[in-house]
Nucleic acid binder design. Structure first.
Lengths: 193, 193
DNA sequence: AGGGCATGTGAACGCCGTCAACATCAATGC
DNA sequence: GCATTGATGTTGACGGCGTTCACATGCCCT
């Protein structure tokens, strides 16, 4: 039975539908009314679950952030081990995963790091997932004395910035896809010894 | 005589008004109708000069890009000379100027590098201004053998990416303002010898 | 002087987000 | 078992939006 909301899961259904719409058309170009119609529900029904359209988009953004975090977690899982090579692979893989997420889901990426989600801080605790993974990888390299001497200072911010910037510039068409791999290589050459 | 459009400069006036609106409220949250009203003109008048709202925003974006380029040009002019120190100052100054532009004009920055302006490519020739200045500064450092050996490969993309990424993350509130200076320092430590 | 063309107007269309009043249904307490 | 209550969904409306089309206006060129 499709008409199961009403003490059902309208909120989740709307997030799901909105997520699909954002992925396809971008956060701008998504209309509350269209989402409601797709769910055979009146437009105003949304307001029982979300303060406004932006609140729904923030919920979508949290899904997107979780997806990014999962990609990065998978990379860590795919390169276990205590060796220098494994540490290097984890570091490079995290960067590649971040960029791959942006390339695969540009509209989601834009929403997650755009003004709507940033303003409503989904908690520094949310994006702490990805960021903590990066810091962890860098600490590991540092502990293994694999970093150029004196490089650790500010390196987390630099690496995050470079990765984020390249990802943004790629999805806006200012740089070709290959720039992603080029960045990871370049970053490795600069920071690793 | 203020009411001088009609074979006047409505197009320029609209860009100017739109520029002000974007700077204050962001490219989303800017309405064609409001701009027209501010200029005492009917909403449909815009369509004699711009294909649609996005075309107007692209024109605004070009102004923004020109402003960025001018900031960077000013930095180069402020640090003339043939010395290593001057070359270093130009390199660091360009990065700082890029970030300062984003911090001072976040809404303009978002528009310039956002989907609207990227899609309508204002010509790789447009943003070539800032990019060429960066490449020039790096070439100069390279000619002076001030770069870490082997670092030049892909460094322009890395530096652009890092600068752009940090700027984005700062204006969305994910990083504090000081991260800008920290990045420039960190980048210098990594790439310069 | 007059025709043509660029420019601006007015009214309308179909969207949009949002709200307030109302309907409906599930669960709870008697 | 039934009424009350609170959560949930509907209806209809409001004002604003981008855009279009038929029409007015006024400058420039011949």
């Amino acid at each position: 039975m499709a008409r199961a909301y009403h003490h059902g899961a309208l909120a989740e259904a709307m997030v799901e539908e909105a997520l699909a719409a954002v992925r396809e058309h971008g956060a701008d170009h998504v209309s509350l009314r269209a989402i409601a119609q797709a769910l055979d529900v009146s437009p105003s029904a949304a307001y029982n679950h979300f303060a406004d359209k932006d609140a729904l988009l923030v919920a979508v953004g949290q899904c997107g952030l979780a997806a990014l975090d999962e990609r990065m977690a998978r990379v860590l899982a795919a390169h276990p081990g205590d060796s220098d090579d494994a540490a290097r692979a984890r570091f490079a893989g995290l960067g590649r995963a971040y960029i791959a997420f942006a390339v695969d889901e540009p509209n989601l990426f834009r929403l997650v790091f755009g003004p709507i989600c940033a303003e409503a801080d989904m908690g520094p605790e949310s994006w702490t997932g990805p960021y903590a993974k990066l810091v962890g990888a860098l600490d590991e390299l540092n502990d293994r004395e694999m970093l150029v001497v004196g490089a650790r200072d500010g390196l987390d911010v630099t690496v995050w910035g470079a990765t984020h910037g390249i990802a943004s510039l790629i999805i806006e068409g200012y740089l070709p896809r290959e720039a992603g791999d080029a960045l990871v290589d370049s970053m490795g050459r600069l920071a690793l010894r």
